[in-house]
Structure formats: C-alpha cells, structure tokens
Design a protein around this nucleic acid. Structure first.
Lengths: 337, 337
DNA sequence: CAACGTTTCCAAAACGTTTTGGAAACGTGT
DNA sequence: ACACGTTTCCAAAACGTTTTGGAAACGTTG
C-alpha cells in the first residue's frame, strides 16, 4: 500500500492541501513546513499517484503510437530505431509512450478513438501515412493533437515530418543511369502507402528525364519485407529479359532482392545493380554493402515528439511541416564503388 | 469536450449510478432503461474516461516494458518482433503497453519505481536480464507483478521465460566440430547479461566435450551490434592464426562478422564458418544464409504477457517458469549445406 | 486601538467513474 | 389490509490529487 498525501498529512499534522502545495514548492507554505513535509515524504517513500494526478489535471502526459503491423509478425529495424528516438525524447520531457499494435482495417479507427476520447493519450504520432488516411481525418475532426510521419494526398494542413521521396528516387535514377543502366525494375511497397507513391513517382520522373520509360510490367508490388523482396526479385530475375537494375522501395526488400540475385549466381554490383531506401544499419554491413537513401530516422522520431508536445502545450510547433532531403549513400551494390 | 456519464444521466433523466450500471449490463437495471441509456450513449459518442476508471478501480490496465537502450541509438530487429508479440497479446486482453527507453545506470531503478509506485502500470516485463539484476530485486521487494525474459544468477524464485543458451551453444559446438573445426573464436555479448554467460558456458562445454579448449584470447567481448561484430571479427581475422570458425552470441554480430570476412576476400562457409543466435528474419536471407539458433521471439513475448496478466489477476501462472530449447537451423554460413 | 497587509494554513470542491447500502414502487399471497 | 419479495432506481462515498476561496494569526501602520 503506497503512501499517499493523506498519510503525509497525518504524520505531519498538516492538511492535504498544505502537503500538496509544499511538495510543489508553492510559497504560501513556510520553509519549515516544506522541509518537514519533504522529509516525511522521503521517509514514506512517497510517489504521487499518477492516476489521480491525471484525472485531476485532465492530462495523461502520455503520447500514443500505434504500430501498423501487417500480419501477426512484425520485424522492422527501421521502427526500433524510430521508437528509440520517440521514446528518448518523450522521456526527456516527462511524457510516457503508449505503444499499441493494430493492423489497418475496420478496428483501427476504434483503437484511436478509444485512446483519444478515453483520455488515455494527450496526442498521437501517426506513422506510415496512407494516401487517404482516415486516421488523420478522424484526429483532425476530433481536434486531437497529432503529428504524422509522412504526408497524404489532398490538403496538407496538418503537422508532419517526411522525407522527399521524389527527390530521393530521382537521385537513384540519375546515379544508375550514369552508370549505364537502361532497363530498370522497381519493387514498390504497397501502393496505398503515401511514401510508396512518392518513391515510384520519383523514379519514374528520374528515368523519364533520361528518356527511359518505366513500364508497368517492370513494377512489382511487394510488402516491405525481406522475404517479399526475395520472392519478387526472383520472379524478375527469372524473366527472359532480366533488368540491369532493381530499385527497391525500402532496404529490407533490397536485401531480399540481393539474396535472390546471389542465389541465382549473379554478382550484385556487377551483373546487376540493386538499391534500397532508408539506410538501416544492416545496409552498411550487407555483402555487398547496399546503395541506398539515408534518412535520419532517430532524429525524425525526436523531432515529431518535439512538435507534438508543442501542440499539446497549445503552442504552434516551429517548424510545423518538415520535408527532409534524403542523402544518396553510394555503396557497392550498384556497381559504382 | 467528450461526453461523460453525467451527460447521459441528464439526457435520460436517470442517475449516474443507473447509467453506469446500465452500461455494464447489471441486472438491477430494467431492459428498457438499458436500451435507452445505450442509445443515448451511442448518440453522444460516449467513451468512458479511462483516467477516472483507473483511479476508481486502482488498476491501470497497463503493462510496462522498458527497453534497455545502450547509447542513444537502438536498432534491433529482435525487439521489434518481441514488441509485436507483447503488444498484440496485451491488446487482445484489453491491456495497454507502456514503453520506455532507459539505459542501465543510476536512473534506471527510479524509472521502474516511479511507474510502479505511481500506479502507472500494473506490472512489468523485464528484458535482457543481467547476472545481478537490481530491477528484479526491486520489483520483488516492492511485491510488484513482473515476469522476466531471461534468468539471473542466484535463486530463481520469479516467473520467467528463457531459452536454454547452454544447450543451444552445445548444439553449435557439436555441429561445427563434426564439420572438422578445431580452432574457434567467440564473439560474446556484454558479460553482465545473463544470456551471454549461458551462451559462453554452453560453447565452452560443447567444445570441451570434444577436448577442444576455448582460450581467453579467442573470446572477444562485443556489443550485440552488427558494427561491433564487424570490428571484432575483423581483429580476429587479421591475426596470424585465423580461427576456422567464429561463433557469435547473436545474429547481428554474426552478420557483421560475415561482412568482415567477406571484405577480406574470404568465402563464408568455405574459408571460415560463422554462426549466430536468435534467427532473426535477416538470417535466412543473408548471403550466405546464416546458421543460427532459432527462438520463437514473437511467441515468447505473447507467453510473457499471458503469465504477467495471470499474476496481475492474482492467479499463479501456469507454467511459471519456461525454458525453451533453441533449435539449430543449419544454413550455409557454417559450410554444411 | 483600529485598520490593514503578510504569512501560513486549510476545508471543500472538483476531476469521472464504480460501488455500497438502501429505498421506492409494485405485485402477490394471506 | 398487511407482510413480503422483486424490480428498479439512486444518493453518497470513495479513489488521490490539485485548486479555489477564504480564514486565522500576527505584525505594521495610522
């Protein structure tokens, strides 16, 4: 049975009001009383009951993050680093992080609704935005504080951090073309994800600038996993007209594609070029190391928390919309180095 | 301003008591009133205020998980899958998951204390147990519900799930010796981690059974990361007497070691054998695929939640101590297949 | 000495919910 | 008409905290 303010009040002979105010350092409490109260609190090992504090203050000091797990499994090095960024920054400012897992679908909105209306969280971080994102529409309607990692289609009147996928993929296209590539294939993440759209668009634009079209048959829709990349790249590689380069929409798929190429006896970076997106730690140490686009995922997490806390505090985040330029990291998988 | 029970009471002309009981389906409320209350609740979009519920019930319906981030960065595919297992199972039973990040150190215990005594969580899942684990000692003293992923030294009087690291590494040793290896090196995780201890001990035992000693110079202490594995394996490989096999304490270090070997022109699985531990998704699709020990990390997470919820509910978890046998997954990195 | 300002304290209300311990209303059997 | 059981309802207390609006005690000033 943990000690309460009441216990301290009894032990000190003061009222709960005075104890509360003493602990918070209000100056309508004498220095002597303050010292006494603090000493007794220490003795009793007092910790304020957060549930009571929260009910009283009508604030949960908690931010919500719902991981969009596709399927029961979910293994993404990208997210663990993102989570670290979010968690560390939130902790620094005394906020808790409520993490849920919820696949997109009919129950998804309810999960958000319950947490917002049930006052479980003061705000949300939305990840993996979709082209039409009902989560964002809901939060906007409910006037609940939120920030998004990624953009959506339509009016961008909400705070977000995103990487410029179009620019990133144009860099990739330029680089691969400069190495002599003419026939490309693209492993795209699920097309309802907004970043998938940007990345495809960027690649298309980048190639078109060199008069190289990206044909529908050269685009394969994957699922962001290594296994998926392995499978889909395999089917590409088994075609009569093998592409000279496989551009993947994220690093995991790219690593899977590398594996598929290698298991067919191809030398990656020589017989075929492969690139990714994200620059997860794995990309640096794969064999060969993966050419990819770097985004500072840890910092993005931290930045989103800063923005969200500003909104929760009733301020306007500065800046409130951030578009980061991904940096092309050229490694050996594309045959350059 | 979300609707409260009071609002429903006013709209229906009933008391808050009746509304509360109607919503919970108590049978001292007439069917008619129940229907009315539910309809109005629906109309108003009523969601119970969890903060109030929690204060009243003295339960937070939340379980805590503190990720031991070493350094600011933290990228571990192992944990994201573990998190999915924990999160999904907790959500199934209506529990929230409070995730924090906290490096081991002087502030660590305070983080646990605050959440336990502040009633923020009903129980904890401890991960990456250490040989002497003050977190466990504290939670035991505080009589707070907890379960651990891993064991500790001393009396094992707490509920845990762990893999049998000794057995696992003996399997590895047997296998590598059967392939003709005589000179081994081991990349160990930080030795204060209990699983590092078991794994080293298992390897030692396994080799000793074949009269092969593991000399202190053949053991290098790493940090669980791919980068660390790359660096440490590199220093091993640059020695005059190069080991025939590098056994790594986890998959990430093993992948780093593979990269180090390959960057020195060695063919992994032929010039040198490399093995890991964990069987992360990456292991299957690395090149060559990594021989490793499989542990069902998603299920472990789910199992731990089941056990913890039992304890929170005042029951005794069945079983309360689980030791899983890791399965040796032989792939090409050790030269067998 | 009265009026006033300071310092220090506290009772009570409030946050939104659940539970306790009745009580009113109604029918049923005598 | 009465006693009794059922059904249906509700006022009040409680969870632990913070805040509001004083009030008491004391010193200072006119």
């Amino acid at each position: 049975m943990p000690a309460t303010i009441k216990d301290i009040a009894e032990r000190t002979g003061k009222s709960v009001t005075t104890v509360s105010r003493a602990l918070h350092g209000y100056d309508d409490v004498s220095a002597q009383t303050k010292a006494l109260v603090r000493q007794v609190a220490e003795e009793l090992g007092y910790e304020p009951n957060r549930l009571a504090q929260r009910l009283q203050k009508q604030r949960s000091d908690t931010i919500g993050l719902i991981l969009p797990t596709f399927g029961p499994r979910f293994s993404d090095p990208f997210f663990s680093e993102f989570l670290a960024g979010v968690g560390n920054r939130a902790a620094r400012d005394g906020f808790d992080l409520l993490v849920s897992t919820q696949a997109p679908g009919p129950n998804e909105l309810q999960a958000y609704r319950r947490k917002v209306q049930g006052r479980q969280v003061d705000g949300f971080i939305i990840v993996r935005t979709r082209r039409q994102d009902e989560r964002i529409e809901y939060l906007r309607r409910a006037k609940a504080p939120f920030v998004a990692f990624g953009r959506t289609e339509g009016v961008l009147d909400f705070p977000f951090v995103d990487e410029d996928g179009v620019l990133g993929m144009r860099l990739v296209a330029d680089h691969l073309v400069s190495l002599g590539g003419r026939h490309f294939a693209y492993l795209t993440p699920p097309q309802e994800l907004m970043f998938a759209h940007y990345r495809l668009e960027g690649l298309r634009q980048g190639l078109l600038a060199h008069d190289i079209p990206l044909r529908p048959t050269d685009i394969i829709a994957g699922d962001l996993t290594q296994r998926g990349g392995f499978r889909d790249a395999g089917s590409l590689l088994d075609r009569a007209a093998r592409p000279q380069a496989i551009v993947a929409g994220n690093d995991l798929m790219a690593l899977g594609a590398m594996s598929a190429a290698q298991s067919r006896g191809l030398i990656v970076g020589q017989d075929i070029a492969i690139t990714g997106f994200d620059d997860i730690p794995m990309a640096e140490h794969s064999h060969p190391p993966l050419t990819t686009l770097h985004q500072p995922i840890y910092e993005i997490g931290a930045m989103l928390v800063d923005m969200l806390l500003a909104i929760i505090a009733g301020r306007v985040p500065q800046p409130s919309q951030v578009l980061l330029e991904p940096r092309l990291v050229v490694r050996r998988s594309c045959g350059a180095a």
